[in-house]
Structure formats: C-alpha cells, structure tokens
Design a protein around this nucleic acid. Structure first.
Lengths: 131, 131
DNA sequence: TCTAGTCCTTCCAGTCACTGGAAGGTCAAG
DNA sequence: CTTGACCTTCCAGTGACTGGAAGGACTAGA
C-alpha cells in the first residue's frame, strides 16, 4: 500500500511515517516508481508505534519496545522495566505539575483581576516576600 | 556586573542569559571591551524571568508578563488572564498524564515481568483486544 | 493525446528553549 | 610575560516532528 493508506490505517501522518523511516524505525519496500510500498506488517508496526507514542514513550523507547516486540526470545521483564521507568517519569511529572498548579492557583486567587495595576502575581514573580 | 555575576544572582545559566538577550527579553549595556554590563535592574528582570519560566510560562508569556510588570498603567486582569490560561493548560496536562498513568499502571500490573516472552504490554501496543 | 488534479518523492527550514563547543579577544595575578 | 579565568560570537545539535517548495508519477476525463 502507498503511504497515504499506511497513514490511514495507522493513524499517523504521512510526514511522521517518512520521519520514522528516516530514523530507521521502519523500512518499507520501494516500488519501481520509487514510491514506498507498505506491507500489512509495516502498517501494523506503525500502529504499534502510534500507540506507544500516544502513551508517551520516547522514540528511543519505542525503538526498544518494537525490537522487543519482534524478538520471540524476549523477556517480558525487559518490557516491564521500560514501562515502569516511564511510569515513574509520568508520576514525577504529575507531581511537578500539581505543585505548579497549586502555586499558580494561590496567585490567581489572590489577584483581584480588575483594571488596577497592583497584582500579587507580578509581585511574586518579582520576588516579593510572601505575607 | 558581568554575565557570570548576573548568572549567579538570577540563578540562570550565562548561556540562557545570552539567549534571552538574543530574543530581546533583556538589553544589557555594553562596556568598552564589549562585555555585557548588567545593572541591578537587569539582574532583577532575569530573576523575574527565571521564576516565571520555572512556573512553566512560555517565553512569549514571559515577554508579556515582563512588559506588564514594567507597565505602571497595567490592569491586573491582564496578568490574571495569562495565569488562568496557563493554569488551564496545566490542569489539562495533569489530566492527560493521569489518564496515561492509569493505562500504563494496568499494563504493568498485568505483566508478570519474568524471563518468559508473553507480555500484555506488548500485546496492548500491538492492538490486541482486551480480555 | 492532452490536461487537470492528486498523489508521491526529496530536501530544506522552522518549531521551542536552550545547550555544547570551537575559535579567539580581555583581564587580573604572579 | 605567562597563565588561567573570564568574555565574545558563531555554528550545530537536541526531540519529534511539521510546513513548504520543487519536481516526478499516476489516474480520469475530454
């Protein structure tokens, strides 16, 4: 199938698919006209990549996951470790964002938000002592 | 003061300060030797930028916040709106990450994680139907 | 056969906010 | 006068695409 069909079945933009080929994630065959010719397996891999990316795995993690996926001798512990590492990063990121959210929420609540210039948000950014 | 002192007092790397000058966030004076010469006010602005960035505001938001900070006629409502928009984005990002976290957690829990190859995580990425 | 329109190709540049490094000028201490 | 720490500019790279230009290939219709 052509790249637009591969894009449709995998849900990835054609541009992204070309990029994935460029960085060696997939190696579709080529027709005599130079067009990429995607097998069903290629499309399946692309869908795999799309799902892994949408779960937030990095490209390099996706590369590893894909090679594990294709390795019939793989140990599920390897996959699990990658997923657990990723889970840890997500957890930390959530905590970080929640801390930010809490701080900003306080600032927004304290700012009266009218047409006067005095603003606790700017005061805080400028380094004013709280209180 | 020289850039390394500005870096020390603001907490930003010298490289970042040069970058901020390049994109027009600050305009430090120059000495006869071509060195940047930061006033206390410059250092203060840099600290302001550092705090705003650490709260996750984009560079363009920082630019606006800084100009509002320097505008004695500003309306605090403008600042509040930027902060609220940002708060909304943080909230959505947190929800997104929590959804991801939930999915990955389920997958990790279901994967026995030993030296056998069967792995629900890969099955899921490959598009297997749940159940 | 010609043409219009849609597909495909490659290549280059831009995104965001830095970060690293090379090459070279300046300054302060000994 | 040398050493070493500072400063300068410029170029390139990061991650993961995304947009667009220039040009070749294919398909449908007149």
């Amino acid at each position: 199938m052509n790249i637009s069909d591969a894009a449709r079945t995998s849900g990835l933009p054609a541009k992204t698919i070309r990029y994935y080929e460029e960085i060696g994630l997939i190696r579709p065959a080529r027709g005599p006209n130079g067009y990429r010719d995607f097998s069903d397996q290629d499309a399946h891999k692309l869908a795999f990549l799309g799902r892994a990316r949408s779960l937030g795995f990095s490209i390099e993690e996706c590369r590893t996951l894909l090679s594990l996926y294709e390795d019939r001798e793989r140990a599920s512990a390897d996959v699990r470790q990658i997923a657990r590492d990723h889970l840890g990063r997500i957890t930390r990121k959530i905590e970080e964002l929640q801390a930010l959210h809490g701080m900003l929420e306080v600032l927004v609540a304290r700012c009266h938000g009218d047409d006067r210039p005095d603003c606790p948000i700017l005061d805080d950014l400028a380094g004013a002592e709280p209180g």
